[in-house]
Design a protein around this nucleic acid. Structure first.
Lengths: 135, 135
DNA sequence: ATTATTTTGTTTGATTGTCAAGTTATTTGG
DNA sequence: CCAAATAACTTGACAATCAAACAAAATAAT
């Protein structure tokens, strides 16, 4: 248990470094790419929901979104029913960035699991499912 | 493979959120606790090495270390042989914080793995070992 | 041995990400 | 209909960060 704990911490650290270097290559900041990632994997959403998912305040997000709009990565559209709200969604350019980032992640997953046999991958997948449910 | 990739991303996100909330409770910042963590798990080291492990410049670290010294969490001692260098190490208070954080991590690992049978934990541990080696 | 280069840590100035608090517009509940 | 809650924005203040310039010391080259 103790060793598994250390392995998880090490895994997290290495994933962090990897993410940082991959993001740097895009020319955008970590916060910016993270925003694109969330929008890409969950689809268009209101500012409030996006802020919650990113773990930041809406005030911070307002500024961040403004930049991303100027970069042409995302677009703001009024909410159909709630006129207080704004829907934020990826532009085609934003979608392209998300897909690119996704491919990087997939490649990494393939790279780090290449010495695992099919049975281990199966157990690993099930274990991640169970662990993610417990957070 | 595709689903495993998504599970890893989800796992990373959840671990991130967890870390953020645990760190917030300590009253110190994420960067500060991270510095304590590295010093706690690897022992005293030079500024340069610490900066490299944290993925920041020595300039940034100089400022950060100054604060942590004022908080009484770490101490600076001259390097025995290289007079350009400074050794940074945890004080007893810093060690206490590290131990506390470590206990939190261990508790989390126990919590998220509680529905895994011993055999799965074994495979999971071996898989993490192999994956960490491939980064 | 002397000089040039590299390494280590610090300082400074600029930029980014962040929050808290206050504001406005809108929605919801009594 | 009015009060309270919610959504987004604005502003002012910090934290964290980097790059560049610097000084001191170690290392390499000649």
């Amino acid at each position: 248990m103790h060793s598994l704990n250390n392995l998880i911490i090490e895994f997290y650290d290495k994933l962090s470094s990897w993410e940082q270097s991959v993001v740097k290559d895009t020319g955008y900041s970590l916060a910016q790419v993270h925003t694109i990632e969330v929008l890409g994997s969950h689809g268009p959403m209101r500012m409030k929901e996006l802020a919650d998912r990113l773990g930041i305040t809406t005030g911070t997000l307002t500024v961040q979104v403004e930049k991303l709009v100027q970069f042409g990565l995302i677009a703001r559209t009024p909410h159909e029913v709630d006129r207080r709200s704004i829907l934020v969604e990826l532009t085609s350019e934003g979608t392209a960035l998300h897909k690119h980032h996704n491919r990087m992640h997939l490649q990494l997953t393939e790279d780090i699991t290449r010495h695992l046999d099919p049975e281990s991958i199966k157990v690993l997948t099930q274990s991640f499912e169970k662990m993610n449910r417990e957070f």
